[in-house]
């Protein structure tokens, strides 16, 4: 029996796992002039959702499904060519691990924390967290897919002083696409690690490296 309220706790933007300091690539996109308004934000989010979003949602679903988290961590590395983004994923994974072990302690989380003391990829940790919270793989996929768009939306509100109602409306309009991606991710996770998607976004990989080298920035990534 899955508990819907646990999903709300985990997916809450106020869940203390460090996400608030990350723009999901929106900061460099704003600086480059690619995001200037709500429509640009929607396009950016849709592209990120169908690429990075699908890939990380499937990793989370697979971890929630019970696939070997260390093998998934390796699969996540192979799907993350940017060293800046690998570092971010592990840092956020370590931060999430701290919050997860305080909220839903489980032997599987402890084992992963000990095997990857510098942090495992965040979606893998999230999948295990969902499992520990009694959630389903599809819940983990939904949660991660939503993070891939809610992060940029929140960041753009701060970066552009975009109307927060508009930004939230963008997220609401993405709901059908979010459902579709989460279902696709959960379905892939049922077929084992070799069936996991690897959808990638070349521009996000490139701009993440550029952003990591900025001397002054508002967001960590």
């Amino acid at each position: 029996m899955t508990t819907r309220a646990a999903l709300l706790v985990l997916a809450d933007g106020r869940f203390p796992a460090g996400g608030h300091a990350h723009s999901g690539g929106a900061e460099p996109a704003v600086k480059a002039g690619h995001i200037r308004n709500a429509q640009d934000l929607a396009d950016f989010c849709l592209g990120r959702l169908h690429t990075t979003g699908l890939t990380v949602a499937a990793l989370a679903a697979a971890a929630a499904h019970g696939l070997d988290p260390l093998a998934l961590d390796e699969a996540a590395d192979a799907r993350t060519p940017s060293p800046a983004l690998r570092a971010v994923a592990r840092k956020l994974g370590r931060q999430l691990m701290r919050a997860a072990r305080a909220t839903w302690p489980s032997p599987a989380l402890t084992a992963l924390a000990e095997a990857r003391p510098r942090g495992a990829h965040q979606p893998v940790v999230l999948g295990l967290t969902a499992r520990a919270a009694g959630l389903e793989p599809a819940d983990a996929a939904h949660c991660v897919a939503y993070e891939t768009v809610s992060g940029p939306a929140t960041a753009v509100v701060r970066l552009l002083s975009l109307d927060p109602f508009e930004a939230t409306a963008v997220l609401a309009r993405l709901a059908p696409a979010l459902d579709e991606v989460a279902e696709q991710a959960a379905e892939a996770a049922r077929h084992g690690i070799d069936a996991l998607p690897a959808a990638s976004a070349p521009l996000l990989d490139i701009t993440a490296e550029a952003h990591a080298a900025w001397p002054v920035r508002l967001f960590a990534s």
Binding site: G19, R94, R158
Partner: peptide, 21 residues
Amino acid sequence: AVETGACPHTAIRDDISANLE
């Protein structure tokens, strides 16, 4: 230095995970 996403008060009060790291 901890990066705060433009919100230091969030990083020291509401979501302290990066500071604990």
